[in-house]
């Protein structure tokens, strides 16, 4: 349970850590958007260089990112297999029953794998270097214009940050209840699927009871401190773009321009 890297924040003081969370969010978004147009070795190579550079700037070991990819391995594999067998075209390389593997299929599969990996790595860079509350703040700030059309952005951001705050608590709680029930002989790894599914009940019920209790406690605590609505709140951390954010944007812009260049020249 402790080795899930997706969305985990690793404290640090690297160049990337110190960037404004909005910058990281925009850069990540731009990168993912641009990746949708990658279609050749040149564009993928460039994107990989960009990601590797960004990883270096977080000053975290590559192994950490590698661990982060592991849980998504099966998803990637599934997509790769789909691409491999379901891309039409010539020449056909291999026949497997009614299915066939084509050369474009193989290329597509490799491209999809790289694309997936790079996108996940890029998002990992953002979540790994940004505390969840900062991500919620950044989202609130970036979506602020929607306030004009009466979207309750502040409330949504608050809900998001509370939800994020609850994730580690619930993980902890799950571990505790699991330990308690394991001590009473619970086993997830024996019996048929129905027996295994039933084994989860003694875990889920206490977890839900606890989560509801926590939510009530939090609601009470907020009300006691006079919470009415999120809109008029002031911020403890005020987001400010700095010089390094400009550098990050310029870097990203250069990346996008070269990308377009490669794309047009068709390498």
């Amino acid at each position: 349970m402790n080795n899930i890297m997706i969305g985990r924040f690793v404290p640090g003081s690297s160049w990337v850590h110190r960037l404004d969370p909005r910058t990281k969010m925009i850069v990540t978004f731009v990168f993912i958007f641009v990746m949708l147009f990658a279609s050749s070795w040149g564009t993928y190579a460039l994107s990989a260089v960009f990601v590797v550079l960004a990883i270096r700037l977080t000053q975290q070991p590559f192994k950490l990112y590698w661990d982060g990819l592991k849980p998504i391995f099966w998803l990637i594999l599934f997509t790769v297999v789909l691409q491999l067998f379901l891309t039409p075209g010539t020449p056909v390389v291999l026949h497997v029953g009614p299915l066939q593997v084509t050369w474009p299929g193989i290329l597509n599969a490799i491209y999809v794998m790289i694309r997936f990996t790079l996108i996940i790595l890029m998002s990992t860079i953002m979540t790994l270097s940004t505390p969840p509350t900062s991500i919620a703040n950044a989202l609130e700030s970036l979506l602020a214009p929607l306030n004009k059309i009466h979207v309750p952005v502040a409330e949504l951001a608050l809900m998001l940050s509370i939800a994020l705050r609850f994730v580690p608590l619930l993980m902890d709680e799950t571990q505790k209840i699991m330990n308690a029930q394991k001590s009473r002989g619970m086993s997830f790894s024996t019996g048929g699927p129905i027996k295994r599914a039933r084994a989860i009940v003694p875990l889920l019920i206490p977890l839900f009871v606890g989560a509801l209790q926590r939510a009530l406690d939090l609601a009470n605590a907020m009300e006691i401190r006079g919470f009415k609505d999120a809109a008029s709140r002031t911020k403890y951390r005020i987001l400010l773009y700095g010089r390094q954010d400009v550098v990050a944007f310029i870097g990203t812009l250069i990346f996008v321009l070269i990308f377009i260049g490669i794309k047009i020249s068709g390498v």
Binding site: E173, I177, N179, A180, V201, P202, I205, P206, V209, G210
Partner: peptide, 9 residues
């Protein structure tokens, strides 16, 4: 465990 009442289901 600590606060074992949390294990009741």
């Amino acid at each position: 465990f600590q606060f074992p009442e949390n294990q009741l289901f």
